[in-house]
Design a protein around this nucleic acid. Sequence first.
DNA 1: AAGACGGGGGC
DNA 2: GCCCCAGTCTT
Length: 349
Amino acid sequence: MNFTKTIIHWYSINKRSLPWRETQNPYKIWLSEIILQQTQVKQGLPYYEAFVSKYPTIFNLAKAPESEVLKLWQGLGYYSRARNLHSTAKYIVNELQGNFPNTFKDIIKLKGVGDYTASAIASICFNEVTAVVDGNVYRVLSRYYNIDTPINSSKGAKEFKILAQELIDKKQPATFNQAIMEFGAKQCTPKNPDCENCPLNQSCLALSKQKTDQLPVKTKTAKAKKKHFNFLVFISSDGKTVLEKRTGKGIWQNLYQFPLIETEKSTNEKTLRNALKNNTLLYNKKFELTLYNDEPIIHKLSHQHLYTKFWIITVENIKTETIYVKDINKYPVPILIGNFIESFNFDLV
DNA sequence: AAGACGGGGGC
DNA sequence: GCCCCAGTCTT
């Protein structure tokens, strides 16, 4: 059974109709590939449509302010993708006269573009014979060839890249790359793969050894740490509140949030009130403090579980940089904040 | 080599 | 509760 021919034939019958399959425009392919990093097609599709609609060309994207790009990205996560996307658009427009680099070697130099994305763009847009290795490819190849090298190791990355590069169809690299990914997404799925109806079930080594549920192998990752977040939702009598831009190293860089007090443990009103005495936003001011959510909202990220409380603080006026509540939806915020803003309904304030 | 980086969805 | 998703960057 010829693996490559079988995969391509399967794809010709089973491929989904997706907007980025109708183009070889490097801007659109690049955009789609960045959006789809660590993101399922179903989740990324509406964002792709929104970006193409708002920024039809790389010149439109390059002209936009970063906060507008982050706003459009809001809810998709991994916001460094959006920051790098915007930064790279400006670079290509300003330094390369808008000409997208057209070889793997040059494409991979772009910020936010690694081996996978450079291979995807080079093959799809420029017919370069360079194999993609994403989560789907790891799964398909580890099963078909019964390879138990951990896929999240540098040895695994090299090994699977070499194998994929041997298997790629030299005459139609773009089709093969998309075919093997689609095959992983729709046929050789992580759970309950449809081996019964698989065109490769006569030659798949994992299936013959009944090991499909043990492949691919991945070494353990650290489990999430608990954190306690207290957001201070200021409301002044003249309809203002406070949002701060996160500028630090960690999560949600360049997104906005209510002033945050992080505590070691879950905190109560008395403790928080005490902590607020020395807060520069409130120093020597009278305020009312109420807890919005009786039970902490548990927001789960890959590496952190955020136990979150929203504290409503009403004051006469605020002695710091404020925004009008009516403008609050213009700012890019983490989904945790966005959900609160939606449920709190500031319009009634 | 190991962590950090989001949010949604499957089971 | 754990794993995965059209991965990349930093330490």
